[in-house]
Design a protein around this nucleic acid. Sequence first.
DNA 1: GTTAGCATGTAAGGAGTTACATGATTTT
DNA 2: AAAATCATGTAACTCCTTACATGCTAAC
Lengths: 194, 194
Amino acid sequence: MSSKAAALELAVLGLLHESPLHGYELRKRLNLLFGWTRVLSYGSLYPALKRMLRAGLVIEDTTPAGVSRRQRIVYRITPAGEARFAGMITDVGPSAWEDEDFATRFAFFSRTDTEVRLRVLEGRRSRLQERLDRVRSDRQPTGPVDRYVSELQRHSIESVERELRWLTDLITAEHQQQSPRSPQPEHRTPDLDA
Amino acid sequence: MSSKAAALELAVLGLLHESPLHGYELRKRLNLLFGWTRVLSYGSLYPALKRMLRAGLVIEDTTPAGVSRRQRIVYRITPAGEARFAGMITDVGPSAWEDEDFATRFAFFSRTDTEVRLRVLEGRRSRLQERLDRVRSDRQPTGPVDRYVSELQRHSIESVERELRWLTDLITAEHQQQSPRSPQPEHRTPDLDA
DNA sequence: GTTAGCATGTAAGGAGTTACATGATTTT
DNA sequence: AAAATCATGTAACTCCTTACATGCTAAC
């Protein structure tokens, strides 16, 4: 559960919270949700599910259902699993700003407190800003750089700047939701700390 | 050397082609070049250098230089290493469209033939287009999606679309360079196949 | 002097992908 | 009937990160 394993566990628990699922379906949803880059393999998912089963976070529902359904093991989240999810989502560590972990947490923002959301968004923003500053300062220390390298860096920098703007907008929106009046009344967050 | 290790090897050879470097400096440059996401650790770099040393791709220049310089092991590329680099850069496999590998290859495009560049760029573009189509078609199969999930997907889709446009522009530019007249005469590629 | 950064490594541990293995069910 | 896809798993392999260990040198 060293932050990497935690990301998968968090994602699985989050999905199972909505509805019980079997491994195959779970993998598809996971890949859809944050599998843009890497495709999660069964060799990764199934062992993880077994670990979580042993840990009592999920239980297996061997549902033949009578309708001559194909053999499949449906996983359902347990109260312990729910508690675990709640705990993990609140525990904002440095890994929460990392690409993978950030996306996972973001996907479950609806079940996250506003203050935690803000901590995650702002943490992510600082992280990206750091990267940007570092690269910007280290640009062309020795003579004229290669045109392709420079084009690659330009595009990368722009991508990061774009994400920074996105984050800033989100942070602003969160702050507005915290204040008394909200312009768009759709999906109000229940109630908030002062 | 299973495509991941190859990426590091390719990058190291590419950097050493320009000038001999010691491990510490090499790491800094590698992190700057494509370490936006992951930061390469010494525990990864040094063993890789030793492997390449044993393979005869690089040699160690233990240069005390007389000026009371600090102990450092400078790595220099060998003819075998140059050959290896040339071979790897030409060998465009599916891994070349992957994020990491793509960036590495792109960084050394100046030393890559135009036709190979086009294969890499077009391969990358197809790959991204596939992802995009897949995600677009799988959107909201079951009722109204979560607003944060949907916002995350929207942003991801836009990011991919942006990179697709970038790639298309680059491909266009490569084709123009292939044709007789070139608008911007700076950095002409030496000479090209028909 | 002492801290910060330069410089090179090793060992342990974890996580994930690939490839292998198997079999049912649905579609063509 | 054959092919595709559903469905679950295991084992080997690779690779990387973290933490540990050491020592020099420049700056403060």
